[in-house]
């Protein structure tokens, strides 16, 4: 898509993938942080990781198996908390452990049976290994996320502010909540080949955390987070490919650097000097 701007095909693919993935994840990160469901994002990124490993083991397309397990995890979270009469965080802790164990089980099994599986692609991702179709899928999910967030802006705004008050206002919270979980699950699965199961969480939380340092309203966060994420990710891809550095981990470190700088420069930390 951007070949007219970036003649290097490998770099062009990497930049495109990082651009679409970062914008989609950044929009979701605003919702994840404002709804205090960061642990859900964490669990789902590991579910995608386990799904990817299972997919490779059974010879299924990694993206489909990762999406399937992520979506399944999103669907069972709520009912499982209810049935076990436990706090959601505890249930998520159990699910996270299970997903991590599943992923390690399949990876270890492939290595012990001599199937020559390199786990690093699943763990850290490899942005240059993407097929064109995968980049199109990322672009599509990014557009779907933008479209749905715009369509349901009222409901999402109310739910992110206060879930109980949104319900009292007459908003059907459950369908919107599950729609968001579904979007997170699909986005997480599509991003797995780019940044890997371990680093994915950075894209799902850090952009909003950075935007929050400078934004007063949620509307501003929805604009600032994708811009920050896209700039950081594209720079990460450029530097990584140009200097043969691992793109995913490098971009994750860049995100952390931007976050630290944002915290240092944040107007929210400054106490106004007033004369009394």
């Amino acid at each position: 898509m951007l070949e007219f701007l970036i003649p290097n095909n490998v770099l062009c693919h990497a930049v495109e993938a990082m651009f679409f993935a970062s914008i989609g994840c950044a929009i979701l990160s605003v919702l994840i942080t404002q709804m205090n469901i960061a642990s859900i994002g964490f669990t789902m990124s590991h579910a995608a990781f386990a799904g990817g490993a299972a997919g490779v083991f059974f010879g299924l397309p990694m993206m489909i198996s990762a999406t399937a397990l992520s979506v399944l995890t999103a669907l069972v979270m709520g009912p499982l908390s209810y049935r076990t009469r436990m706090h959601t965080d505890t249930t998520l802790g159990v699910l996270f452990g299970t997903m991590m164990a599943l992923a390690i089980f399949f990876i270890a099994l492939m290595q012990s049976t001599g199937r020559g599986f390199d786990a690093s692609a699943l763990l850290y991702g490899n942005v240059v290994s993407l097929y064109r179709e995968e980049i199109y899928a990322l672009a599509l999910i990014m557009l779907v996320i933008i479209l749905l967030i715009t369509l349901f802006s009222k409901e999402i705004t109310a739910i992110t502010f206060h879930r109980k008050m949104a319900e009292i206002s007459g908003i059907r919270v459950q369908p919107v909540y599950y729609l968001l979980l579904l979007l997170i699950a699909i986005m997480v699965a599509l991003c797995l080949p780019i940044v890997g199961g371990l680093l994915l969480y950075v894209w799902l939380v850090t952009p909003a955390a950075i935007a929050y340092q400078f934004c007063a309203t949620i509307r501003q966060m929805f604009i600032a987070a994708p811009i920050v994420a896209a700039c950081t990710s594209v720079i990460g891809a450029f530097v990584g490919i140009t200097y043969s550095l691992p793109v995913g981990p490098l971009t994750a470190v860049l995100f952390s650097g931007v976050f630290v700088s944002a915290v240092a420069l944040s107007p929210k930390r400054r106490v106004k000097n007033q004369t009394y």
Partner: peptide, 14 residues
């Protein structure tokens, strides 16, 4: 990140 006006308007959303 919500202003007073936004919160009051949310009452109408349902």
């Amino acid at each position: 990140p919500y202003t007073v006006e936004e919160v009051v308007r949310m009452g109408r959303y349902g």
